[in-house]
Design a protein around this nucleic acid. Sequence first.
RNA 1: GGCAUAGUCGGCAAGUGGUUUAAGCCACCACCCUUUCAAGGUGGCUAUCGUGGGUUCAAAUCCCAUCUAUGUCACCA
Length: 475
Amino acid sequence: MKVRTRFAPSPTGFMHIGGVRTALYAYLIAKQNNGSFILRIEDTDQQRYVDGAVEVIYSTLKYLGLYWDEGPDVGGNYGPYIQSERKSQYLDYAKKLVSEGKAYYCFCDEDRLENLKKDAELRKIAYKYDGYCRGLSLEEAENRIKQGDKYVIRFKMPKEGITTFDDKVYGPIVVKNNEIEDLIMIKSDLMPTYNFANIIDDHEMEITHIVRGNEYVSSTPKYVLMYQALGWNVPEFVHLPVIKKNKDSDKKLSKRDGDATVEVLKEKGYLNEAIINMLALTGWSPKGENELFTLEELIQNFSVDGISKGNAIFDNDKLAWINSHYIKKLDVDKLLEITVPHLEKHYDIKDRLDWVKELVLLYQSALSYGEEIVELTKLFFEKDIVLDEECKEFMKQEGIDNTIDVFKEEIESITDWNGENITNAINNTKQKSNSKGKLLYMPIRIKVSGLMHGPELPDTIYLLGRDRVIDRLSN
RNA sequence: GGCAUAGUCGGCAAGUGGUUUAAGCCACCACCCUUUCAAGGUGGCUAUCGUGGGUUCAAAUCCCAUCUAUGUCACCA
């Protein structure tokens, strides 16, 4: 049977990291089995609907290279792929179950249910619908419906026995049937509940592997029971551990955490390859020592049994490392794409883009994400530099003033401003001032950049520009 | 509160009874390279596996208890 997985987000705003990872794993499982990856939009909750959210889903997935084989925009043989457009069928399925005695109409109103809940709370036991309408005869029920009574359709859970399923990640899960309540399939507005709609849609779309967060583990037995009642094959379940922001909070990662959306990550200058790579690694571990994977390599190497059971923490340090790895391989255009916009926010650089290009290139190996370029290249833009204690201490050494004076003269005598001549100036200074090594380079570096560390000195001086260098040398 | 799941180095994690003196990656530290930084290379990184019992010749790995965290218990998805 052909493997078919689906990603079924609700269009409620941003795509947080956890959701994207679910999409990634579903994609990977499909692709490594030559299967199909399907996108289904679950928009039945109109109250939470956010304008433009569907576009965010599209663009995020595309940005990461997670292209779907079937979906609202690309079509497919199992459409429609937007849940609100599939309404009609759910009620029919539910009624079929009623006629088979596997479900029943329930007329309990909110007040009664409310009391049941309060009572349960008082007695400190778990609330569970008491099955009040379960015994109603079909005739009686239909009569009441004719009279216009509001109703919902509930699934008739078995009262005895156990239900079990073998989760691909968590192993066998067993639940006692008498602990499961008669859940509602059709609401009083005749719309399906999420759970029910899910089952119908997944079956009709012939989904073979259900990949989703582990918050559904507890409710999966209900799904299994319903699949069985409908006479359908139960799909494979792959429940994923939750992604947490950090150990201390132990909170689930959410939109409130700044970095938690792909958009923000992208904005800060993290590459899509890096995000995919990092996402794959949070909650899954590869067999070998290598942890750097492209999407293509992930398809080859990913395996469900490498998914961990414990909740994962999104490791920002590691993301930075992975990202810097991919940045080093970047061609100039891409590199400029993730850095220039950040520089533009602070400086007017429109008419000196060639210079910016060289500058960014100089820092390519040091960069771990796009936005960092601003901090790294500060000394090229700010007029004044401030020396820290370490620099000041270094500059107190004997003979340094002389070295600087000599170097300044050498620089001033340069007519053709290029790297070669600057290197010559340094070499000449070495001879004339009789200083070498650290005592030669460091004073110049400090004087000119205000820092003890940085890229190649001649390159730095060249990009700083003649005037600025002389200016700093003079102070 | 009931039920479910998880708990291994600073972070991510491998590991399902003996080949584990518990992989690997990130971070960190040291050394090499280099004028310096970054990159790269090499090495290190005081984890007895939440805690307490038990089973066994042998347990991180099995059992019981306990603690902690998370999830779930809606006419929300």
